[in-house]
Amino acid sequence: MNYSWNWGVLLQPTGIGDSTYLNWIMTGIGWLAVIAIVAWSIAMLLGSLLGIMRTLPSPTARAIGTTYVTIFRNIPLLIQLFIWFYVVPDFLPDSIHNWWINDLGANTTALISASIGLGLFTAARVCEQVRTGIEAIPPGQVNAGYAMGFSTAQLYRYVILPQSFRMILPPLSSELTNCVKNTSVASLVGVAEIISQMKTISEYTQNTIEIYTYVTLIFILINVCLIGLMNFLEKRFQVPGLIAGAK
């Protein structure tokens, strides 16, 4: 095998400005974080709303929730991002369309499309988790809440949601992990996040194995951090006595 090893590749200067390849990787991580945070915020807000809607007595609310989930779960993520990046701008009104094409840089348009696309995709999954959490609350709790005079809104706010969100913390955190991993798909619409950087660097330096390994390690590290965050949240919101060993 004629492969020249170079594990110090990250510290090499790129030849463009003063940066080293490490700077490029850090930029990539930065954009990854931006997409993940924006997308996850959209997903939590919209997903919780839809999840609640799917459990309300109103048939209209339920239908809206079900339709949303059906559409956004049956189209692959990649196609959804492509739709937001390539298709939707064409249907924007002219003035916005011009601003989009001319005034925003390529990275920014890709960033916005990717964040919205990933956010809406993940919202469908969060919706299902929230719905499952709400449906798992025993009907006795609902009865007790109503018997005390709570309105439906109060019932959700004080009885149902606090319990169901605690219950779905583990699967929600795995959705968060998926969301962070899925930011990599944004590289295919042109966002300069970590996978993009990885491709570029490996083309420049031909040190493919090293750079791929570093990026793999970074993802493993991100995952470990997310698991740590999840454990912290679970402990923080634990109800004493409810889970074994919580006393």
Binding site: Y146, G149, V159, P162, Q163
Partner: peptide, 21 residues
């Protein structure tokens, strides 16, 4: 109905205390 319910107390077979409070 909510107001009326707040004036009548109910005790359930399975207690139904709110476990997170």
């Amino acid at each position: 109905l909510n107001k009326l319910r707040s004036r009548v107390g109910m005790v359930f077979q399975h207690f139904e205390l709110f476990p997170h409070l």
